[in-house]
């Protein structure tokens, strides 16, 4: 199979398939896929239900290199069953993350310390609507295994989440995404727990209109999340810029990388609750009100601005930790 790495660097992250993202996010020619299409490990559950199956079960996992770091990559494919996590692709995801931890522990055992410029990294490129409901419990089981692994990776292996594909990170994958040390997004990135259509179905169109795309993007989109501090880096939409951003971060010591964590300590919980308190006190009806509170002017122009201009004028939620 031929993959042209140079072409991938300039390719839109939004339009790229899971496999293209996985190959392009690491250094040239270093990606090695685990359980690729030739292994034909398809979902047994979908087959019984008469649903279409895929040879890689909608996920590309493997290992590559960025500079001197071994990089464990998980890349979800949103076009196949909405990128939803089932038993097979969930196991591929969870156990690739576990491999990053194992590599760290082996290095520590063999050399005593893990140098900052050689530490293993775990990257997950999100494009998923959550757990595959056809496989309910099996999918949830794998979801909890990956959450457990994220906890174990803390302060050892940098876990970097990428969002900016067609689906975004929703449902169960929404909080797997926000558990990361660093979240990188392009303008198409979306993070949420319940998707817009489900919210509309549950609470009504007056509360949240799923056909109002501007409303969805300013509520769940990357720019709003960047102002709130959920997204740490907002970048241009090419695989190359995502790769460069990662390459610039990873040599830093772990204590510095994990400073952008959003969950994982009582202090962080308290800090997050302050946002909820603020929203309740000030009776926030729209994301724009919240942007105003953090000191942004011209809030009506923020969604339409070119990205460079946005990054130069934006004021973000101050962090205490």
């Amino acid at each position: 199979m031929k993959i042209n790495w140079e072409d991938l660097q300039g390719k839109s992250f939004y339009q790229a398939t899971a496999r293209e993202r996985a190959y392009g996010i690491v250094d040239k020619g270093t990606f090695k896929e685990f359980l690729g299409p030739r292994d034909k490990m398809t979902s047994p559950h979908l087959l019984i239900l008469g649903e279409a199956v895929e040879f890689d079960d909608g996920i590309t996992v493997g290992v590559g290199k960025i500079k001197k770091h071994p990089v464990f990559v998980v890349s979800q494919e949103g076009k196949f069953v909405g990128g939803a996590l089932g038993e097979v692709n969930g196991a591929k995801m969870a156990y690739t993350m576990k491999l990053a931890l194992k590599t760290y522990e082996k290095m520590k055992e063999k050399y005593g310390t893990v140098p900052d410029d050689r530490k293993p990294i775990c990257i997950v490129s999100f494009d998923s609507g959550g757990v595959r409901l056809h496989e309910a419990n099996a999918g949830l089981l794998m979801h909890s295994e990956s959450m457990e692994t994220i906890w174990e990776l803390q302060n050892k292996v940098p876990y970097i989440a990428l969002t900016g594909s067609t689906i975004g990170a929703y449902g169960a994958q929404g909080f797997v995404c926000l558990s990361a040390d660093v979240v990188i997004a392009n303008d198409f990135g979306r993070i949420g727990l319940t998707g817009p259509e489900v919210i509309q179905q549950e609470v009504g169109k007056d509360e949240f209109d799923a056909s109002d795309r501007a409303l969805i993007w300013r509520t769940m989109g990357a720019r709003s999340k960047y102002i709130l501090g959920d997204v740490d880096y907002l970048v241009k939409d090419t695989i190359g810029t995502f790769r460069d951003t990662i390459a610039n971060i990873v040599d830093e010591p772990m204590s510095k990388i994990s400073r952008t964590r959003k969950v994982g300590s009582p202090q962080l919980v308290e800090e997050n609750l302050e946002v909820v308190k603020l929203a309740a006190e000030k009776q926030i009806k729209d994301s724009k009100d919240l942007w105003k509170i953090y000191g942004n002017e011209n809030v009506d122009q923020i969604p339409e601005m070119p990205q460079d201009q946005f990054l130069s004028v934006v004021k973000r939620r101050p962090r205490r930790i």
Binding site: M1, K2, T17, A18, G36, P37, R38, A52, V53, E54, F55, G58, E77, K79, F80
Partner: peptide, 12 residues
């Protein structure tokens, strides 16, 4: 020419 080849995603 190559040993194997793969394209496409099983979307709708």
């Amino acid at each position: 020419v190559e040993e194997w080849s793969h394209v496409g995603v099983v979307g709708s």
